[in-house]
Nucleic acid binder design. Sequence first.
DNA 1: TAATAAACGCAACATTGTTGCATCTGATTA
DNA 2: TAATCAGATGCAACAATGTTGCGTTTATTA
Lengths: 124, 124
Amino acid sequence: MKATPVRLKVLEVLSTTHLALSPSELESSFSKVDRITLYRTLKDFEEAGMIHKIIDTDGVTRFAFCNNNCPDATHTEDHVHFNCKKCHKMFCLAHVQTPSLQLPDGFTSTGINTVVHGICKYCS
Amino acid sequence: MKATPVRLKVLEVLSTTHLALSPSELESSFSKVDRITLYRTLKDFEEAGMIHKIIDTDGVTRFAFCNNNCPDATHTEDHVHFNCKKCHKMFCLAHVQTPSLQLPDGFTSTGINTVVHGICKYCS
DNA sequence: TAATAAACGCAACATTGTTGCATCTGATTA
DNA sequence: TAATCAGATGCAACAATGTTGCGTTTATTA
Ligand SMILES: [Mn+2]
Ligand SMILES: [Mn+2]
Ligand SMILES: [Zn+2]
Ligand SMILES: [Zn+2]
């Protein structure tokens, strides 16, 4: 994977925030970037396990820097996300683990997405 | 709200399954239905608290019958959903409550979406 | 510097969802 | 039962998001 300007910028933006950003939010971090290139960049990073994808409460796809040193896309999403209903930001709560739960017989889990919605620290 | 054929059929389909269905899945329950009418029907039912919306692991919007007798769209989503990665079906696990968790200072929760992914009872 | 595999940029397309507006219809009333 | 009309429908048009093919450009390596 080559170190290109778009990739470096995306990594820089995602690695310096605790927010999960949508493709269009990332697009506005650039003065000019091709939308398709951005989508491909995000897909490549996700498959490499460098970032993780998370769908917010409104169905918007978002990406966040992965701090888990995962080898590839099989990385485990073990933390909770918080979606503020006022500012619509999505926070990675890296220190809040997803609680475990008891599934009915026959169902086996390979991961849990927990998205809490409410009012964030900065909006309350 | 008038009892029209589309509405009756949507209610019938959703009330006789434990799955959360996407608009396009619902569309194929009909021999012929206008896509826009279906979207409006789902929106109306959701605002009336008769069904609830849930986004699956792949970002697909799905709707499920609400068994909670909620007065309106402020109904509480208190159960866990299970998304099978093989058949891609989404199950309402009505008897599995969303576990509570401890948020960082300043964050207040008004609801939690928990989507478990893995292999369902019928695919394992 | 030259070669080349990878990344980019553009066009074209698919899917999902929304809005405006004219027409139709189901519940209510006369 | 028949007329009425608010509300539901169907169509066109549009917006947002995401994907693929393909020719061109660029970063790395030799
Ligand atoms: Mn995260
Ligand atoms: Mn449900
Ligand atoms: Zn906020
Ligand atoms: Zn399954």
